[in-house]
Design a protein around this nucleic acid. Structure first.
Lengths: 196, 196
DNA sequence: ATTTCTAACGAACAGTAGTTAGAAAAATGG
DNA sequence: CCATTTTTCTAACTACTGTTCGTTAGAAAT
């Protein structure tokens, strides 16, 4: 009862990588099977269908980033400023997306184009992560770390959107993820305007 | 010599819409043909292949937004501030993407997952648009409208990324595009930080 | 009136997709 | 070592993909 677990994991890992690289529709079960060192038909011993395999990858992806971000913020010392909390959330979101998890990357790349039923099935999990950010930013605004006039809903969509889009341009040879997180946090909190 | 043009256009419009809704790989020539009120085989009278049809949609998409943004900024009165120029660029980018052009929306949705040869073919056009923004922001920084320390390259990627991502959440019933542009511009120029 | 061109069609092609069935191999446990 | 279960395989199926082909109805040109 151990080999099955390992194979399942190999398939999931391969699927996450392929879905991330080529997207759901363009990824074939043969692609996944090759990467997992088995035949396409064998996948059916572990998963019901391509759809259900995809759904599981998507679930893991969102759960993972939600978990990581929540955990990292919670691990901050008790007196941590709200700005620092947001900074940590940004950095962890970026790190999970760009470095640690093919699942999360696959989730974010594929969500927009995913077939409607799958997207519906996932809305709950997505919103849970969104709600966490809502809390985080709400608390920051209540404490005065974010100006009262700011539309938090837009701010959240804007920042998370910019972070998610980083998949399109991020290359490991440039700025480190920590540096990116620093710059981005400074940019959105302090703005870029000069004296002009 | 007029009917052909009209059919070609109908196919392109249908393709742009389908590619935007379902993505390149998931869109079938049958989908496109149905929307264009003809049979899949007839598409081949006007286009060489699915790939070349896709390539043309992508070209039109990037050209259109580049053109619109450039035109809108150029149309500003002579003494317009750099901040106002950037604001106009943001608003026009958003409007083209979200309201005016299925082609642009299709381009942005599909670029990341597009097959490598097609992406290569497009890098030039994409960079041309990126270069325009580079100019715009460079001039703003040189004139002091953007603080000297700001990493313009990151700022550009960050802002355009956030704008592009708006496709995932924008719904016409919420804030208008003009309002969004106002808020976003204020956010990135002035920041959201409170007294804290 | 005849020929040529235009724009679309239906039928069919080869290839590949996801999927199923059943045989073969590997692993397990007594 | 055998019997049984677990895992993977080969082979095949159906459905559908992008694409080609030969044909056709009508318009334009001769």
């Amino acid at each position: 009862m151990k080999k099955s677990e390992a194979s399942r994991r190999r398939i999931l890992d391969a699927a996450a990588k392929m879905f991330r690289d080529k997207g759901y529709a363009a990824t074939t079960l043969n692609d996944i099977a090759r990467l997992a060192r088995m035949r396409a038909a064998s996948i059916y011993y572990h998963f019901e269908s391509k759809d259900s395999l995809f759904a599981e990858v998507m679930d893991i992806g969102i759960d993972r980033i939600h978990d990581q971000v929540r955990r990292a913020v919670a691990a901050l010392p008790d007196g941590a400023s709200h700005r620092r909390k947001v900074h940590t959330a940004i950095e962890t979101h970026l790190a999970t997306l760009l470095k640690h998890s093919d699942y999360t990357a696959a989730n974010i790349i594929n969500f927009g184009l995913a077939p409607a039923p799958i997207r519906r099935r996932h809305r709950g999990r997505r919103e849970a992560y969104g709600d966490y950010w809502r809390e985080l930013l709400g608390a920051a605004q209540a404490a005065g770390a974010i100006r009262p006039g700011v539309d938090l809903s837009l701010f959240r969509l804007f920042v998370i959107g910019a972070l998610n889009w980083s998949q399109e341009w991020y290359r490991p040879k440039g700025k480190s993820i920590a540096e990116l997180a620093d710059d981005v946090t400074a940019m959105v909190f302090d703005g870029v305007a000069g004296e002009g």
